[in-house]
Computed example of a mutant assay.
Amino acid sequence: MFTAAKDLISSKAAKSYANNLIGRYGAVEELTIDSGRKRIDVVVQLQGEVSAIGVTIEKYQLHQEDGRTQIEVLDSSCTRPWLQAAMRDHLHGRRFDVPGWAAAAL
């Protein structure tokens, strides 16, 4: 029960954070974090796109390094084949710093 409530609050905060990051390109319509399964689902409406794009981080792993928390995407899927290919080429296996609040949420 506690994990579900934490994930709900974290998802809302992450959606707001993501919208601040991509505001010039579009808007995040939905963002759901499932910290137990290490999964993140996002639906984004990008400017110029006829329909929303679904992106799922199927599996991620967190790493601690030099006092920072980093996320590594292990598997993902997307409703656009070209974006799926780009994610596999440029996202998988790389580590990205996450804000402190997000580290606690993930």
Rank of each mutant, 00 (worst) to 15 (best):
F2G: 02
T3N: 02
A5P: 00
A5V: 13
K6H: 09
K6T: 08
I9K: 10
I9S: 07
I9H: 05
I9C: 10
S11P: 07
S11H: 12
K12D: 05
A13R: 11
A13G: 05
A13H: 08
K15F: 10
S16Q: 13
Y17G: 04
N20K: 11
N20I: 00
I22Q: 03
I22K: 02
R24W: 01
R24H: 01
Y25M: 01
A27F: 09
V28Y: 02
E29I: 07
L31K: 12
L31E: 06
L31H: 08
T32M: 03
T32Y: 05
I33D: 03
I33K: 02
G36R: 05
K38E: 14
R39F: 06
V43L: 04
V43F: 00
V43R: 12
V43P: 00
V44L: 02
Q45L: 04
Q45G: 03
L46S: 01
L46K: 06
L46I: 03
Q47L: 08
Q47A: 04
G48L: 03
V50E: 11
S51V: 12
T56Q: 12
E58I: 09
E58W: 07
E58G: 14
K59H: 14
Y60I: 12
Y60T: 11
Q61A: 15
L62D: 04
E65R: 15
E65I: 14
D66T: 13
R68H: 13
Q70W: 14
Q70K: 15
Q70F: 15
I71Y: 02
E72K: 15
L74A: 09
D75K: 15
D75A: 15
S76L: 14
S77P: 07
T79H: 02
R80Y: 00
R80L: 08
R80C: 02
P81E: 13
W82R: 12
L83Q: 03
L83V: 03
Q84W: 08
Q84I: 01
A85P: 00
A86G: 01
M87V: 02
D89S: 09
D89W: 07
G93Q: 09
G93C: 11
R94A: 06
R94V: 08
R94W: 03
R94C: 05
R94I: 05
F96C: 11
F96H: 10
V98Q: 04
P99Q: 04
P99S: 04
P99D: 03
G100H: 09
A104Y: 06
A105N: 10
A105Q: 06
L106D: 01
